[in-house]
Design a protein around this nucleic acid. Structure first.
Lengths: 337, 337
DNA sequence: CTGTTAGCGCGTTCAA
DNA sequence: TTGAACGCGCTAACAG
């Protein structure tokens, strides 16, 4: 009777020990695998907890080890559609990898200047490490994390050699895509860029410039529209670029590209006949567009996995590279034919 | 010297107590506000921890109170664009509300049939409650949560009167929108629906039917295309509906609508002249579309807030309504003019 | 109003 | 190979 009721809500390691007539220590060792236990006792313990569905409390375990088994990830609440899709994939990748090591993901919703959620989580000792999912030119997040001495990694560069950074090599990718277009004979390639406060915007911009430089050309500043973070700004940029007779428009991300495509379709601009279009990103927003859009492809899910792997290495005291570069693919489609 | 170094990494409540010559209990009470402490001592403690930047460990506090101060939210990893946007808003709302109560959000990335992450989190005792962000016709998640006796709420209906459910009244909203279109004289209103395994799809479908019934009409089954979860399926549906000379297409969500719009634009179908289009959702994907799309508008962020509020009420032992209905807006735009 | 004593559930010494 | 005792950092019950 008592035996059966052992399937109670909160069975503890003591209950198991008592029921089996062994000590808590033995149970603990049998479960964790650390410290030697007789094969017989081990099996006895394991089969018992299996049958009675006992699982140790990660919280108590964490307290005893001064760990939480939680990793915090920052998610900007003020961001465009394609970025949201990006974060979602990243988080999924992280979750799945961390789960393998019994770690979980705690979300810190942050906005432009308000990182109070992050601060609360860190100062409450709720996580062992932080993954910063986007870096900014102003480094307030990095600054804060450094001074609170919590291990962290960033997705994106951050101009600080001491920080472990994961970067998809946007610069190189954007350079390659831009070069390709230049070599296909396009002369007036407009660039519609995103929020310049984000580091990734910088990288993409640099890549764009690199391509021109490498070919001994000079980028025309008149064709560059940065901070086009609203539909209206993008539309204005498109209009001005058409007046300037640009033959191609490069969009820094898919949200921008989406606006460009809407604008073109509305104004009767035919792609690629009247104008070529390409994007420095590849989200599912443009997935089904006709013509298919030339773009760069990054594996967001893998970024999450790598970030998770890196932060755990950091927690284990392993050496991690300052900047870990991830690859990309250039996908040429009909929009630049 | 020691005094200044008190700003050390892991200051504990004992350090504070010792430094101030009081007991840990007093410090604890001064901080939590529970139990009476002399105003003088309280201020002494508060100013000390303020100055030395001490914050109690939520983990230890949780262990002592048999709580974790964490709420789990399930996020489907296999979902369309507009759904992803939905989840992101919901999570942001939850985070911000829970933060007010010192709670945090732990993410369980789940997929179609694999809820192992959720199971791990729950059985490891890592959270006090769960918010299920989408309900399914098959109730494996609800079933699991019920038998593990952890408090939870669902976003969406779940056919189980014992479960606390938050519902945006999709049924009523869809009915209203459909009625409006019928009353505007549209006769052949096609419906392109989503994944029928999701409860929300059912609700929307019912709302569509309700509208016909209320007007004494009968919905034409030939005009209904369910499970159109890929671009190709949606496109086929559009083609067939055009052949059937439908005068309007209702899309169950914005991803579907997006595909419909792409298809129309590609096939030269002019909206609203050749065809009216409306969506049962309103995400930022269609934000800038021309013509603007008639749709239903839900406040996703608020859904998250309400869900968070409800789960905390549940944890506090308060009574919560079985089904909490949230409002919606019908937004009439040029796409149905 | 404050301090002492026990736990919360587990890991980890140190002996045996 | 096993167990007893202690500690992780904090709250709660019970004094005084």
């Amino acid at each position: 009777m008592e035996e059966k009721l052992q399937n109670k809500e909160n069975m503890t390691i003591s209950d198991v020990a008592e029921a089996l007539g062994v000590s808590k220590t033995t149970v603990s060792r049998a479960i964790s695998g650390k410290g030697r236990v007789g094969a017989t006792t081990r099996n006895k313990v394991l089969s018992y907890i299996e049958k009675h569905n006992y699982k140790p409390s990660t919280v108590a375990k964490g307290l005893a080890q001064s760990r939480t088994y939680n990793i915090c990830v920052t998610i900007p609440s003020d961001c465009g559609v394609s970025e949201q899709l990006f974060f979602q994939s990243v988080v999924a990748g992280m979750c799945n990898y961390l789960a393998l090591r019994d770690y979980d993901v705690v979300v810190a919703s942050i906005s432009d200047m308000d990182i109070s959620n992050l601060k609360r989580i860190v100062s409450n000792h709720k996580v062992d490490g932080v993954i910063v999912s986007r870096t900014y030119r102003n480094g307030i997040i990095v600054e804060y994390l450094k001074e609170s001495h919590i291990p962290f990694v960033t997705l994106g560069l951050c101009n600080d050699k001491e920080v472990a950074q994961i970067d998809c090599d946007h610069r190189e990718g954007c350079k390659e895509l831009t070069s390709l277009l230049l070599m296909r004979g396009m002369k007036k390639i407009g660039l519609i860029g995103g929020d310049t406060r984000h580091m990734v915007t910088q990288s993409r911009y640099q890549g764009y410039l690199d391509a021109f430089k490498e070919l001994g050309l000079e980028a025309d500043q008149q064709l560059i529209y940065e901070n086009s973070i609203t539909a209206v700004l993008v539309e204005n940029a498109v209009e001005e670029l058409m007046v300037q007779q640009a033959d191609c428009i490069l969009c820094m991300d898919d949200s921008i590209c989406n606006f460009v495509l809407h604008k073109c379709s509305h104004d009767g601009i035919i792609i690629p006949e009247d104008l070529k279009v390409a994007s420095f990103f590849n989200s599912s927003i443009l997935e089904n567009h006709r013509p298919a859009i030339t773009c760069l492809n990054f594996d967001n899910n893998e970024e999450g996995v790598i970030a998770a792997k890196t932060i755990l290495d950091l927690l284990d005291g392993k050496e991690v590279p300052n900047v870990k570069k991830l690859g990309y693919q250039v996908i040429i489609n009909n929009s630049t034919k």
